[in-house]
Amino acid sequence: MRHPAALARGVWRALCIVVLLGVAGFMALAVAVSPRPLPPEPLTAWWMRQLLGVLRVRVRCSGSPAAPDGLVVANHVSWLDIAVIAGLLPGRFVAKSEVRDWPLIGALAAAAGSYFIRRGSNATQALTDRMEPRLRAGGRIVLFPEGTTTAGDSVRRFHPRLFAAAANVSAVIQPLALRYGRAPDGRNVAPFVGDDAFLPHLLQLLGLPGLEVQVMLAPAFIAKEERGALARRARAAVADALAETPSEPFAPAVAYGREVVTIAGQGMPPPRGAR
């Protein structure tokens, strides 16, 4: 039986999530019908920070992004990864095609300008053709080259084909490593793997007093090699960041809604209303 405090906390946060979903639906509609193009990245970043605030996810960051553009590549542990990265480094994400068909979430992902990918070489070429203009124009794209999630204790092979666009335009590649803390009772609750269902996983997080995630930005590099070499280099950078103690200390934990996040010396004000 759940502790009454945890149950009350979960119910209150669930109500906040419902409100956030309504706000997200309104934002998606605004982007779709606006007579002028609305860049979805700032709206998405704001919404993701609100979500992290409701879930009491505290973010600790080490390192600074080398540039406001390029390709961000990270290990993949959970659906929370998207919220954490989007809140710090606004950009457009690469997502599997199945996400487009998820109720509401799919519409939100599409409105946010996500690039959807299907399995197969032809689909990958189509994705590359869409990513290249974005990278050439100075945009930021975020992807998870493992192609699946893990428990966070290892880094799987990075798929070279996902680096084709970066190689073609000599983009900046920013490796990023994510490490989640455990629940107060020692459970590793953040990973969303295998046959895990979204709703039970969300409800489990809603009942926690909080969760911490460490974000480690490894040194960035220019894509001047072929895509296979880029994939191996990026994977090694992420794996090394997870294995080693950061050379610089982590910034104090940020609880969105109460503090200011500082990334690369630029203050990012926390969202209002996340308590």
Rank of each mutant, 00 (worst) to 15 (best):
L21F: 09
L20R: 03
M27Y: 06
G53W: 08
G10N: 10
M48E: 08
S62H: 13
L7G: 01
S64E: 13
W79M: 07
I105K: 09
G106H: 04
A83P: 10
V33D: 07
A123M: 04
A14C: 08
R49T: 00
S64W: 04
L108Y: 06
A24R: 03
R100A: 10
L21H: 12
I17T: 05
V84W: 07
P68L: 12
L52F: 07
L15Y: 00
A30D: 11
F26T: 15
V33S: 06
R118M: 06
A32P: 14
S97W: 00
W102K: 03
V59Y: 06
V84D: 11
T44A: 13
V77L: 06
N75C: 07
R58V: 15
W47M: 11
E41R: 09
L108D: 02
V33A: 10
R119H: 12
V54Y: 11
V77D: 01
V94C: 04
R92W: 05
M27S: 14
P65W: 02
L88D: 01
A14M: 10
V19H: 04
L29C: 12
V99M: 01
S64C: 11
E98V: 03
W47L: 15
I17F: 13
C16M: 05
A24M: 13
G63W: 07
P40V: 12
A30W: 15
S114A: 15
A67T: 13
V84R: 07
G22K: 13
P35C: 12
F116W: 09
T128Y: 01
M48A: 12
R119T: 06
W47N: 00
S78Y: 05
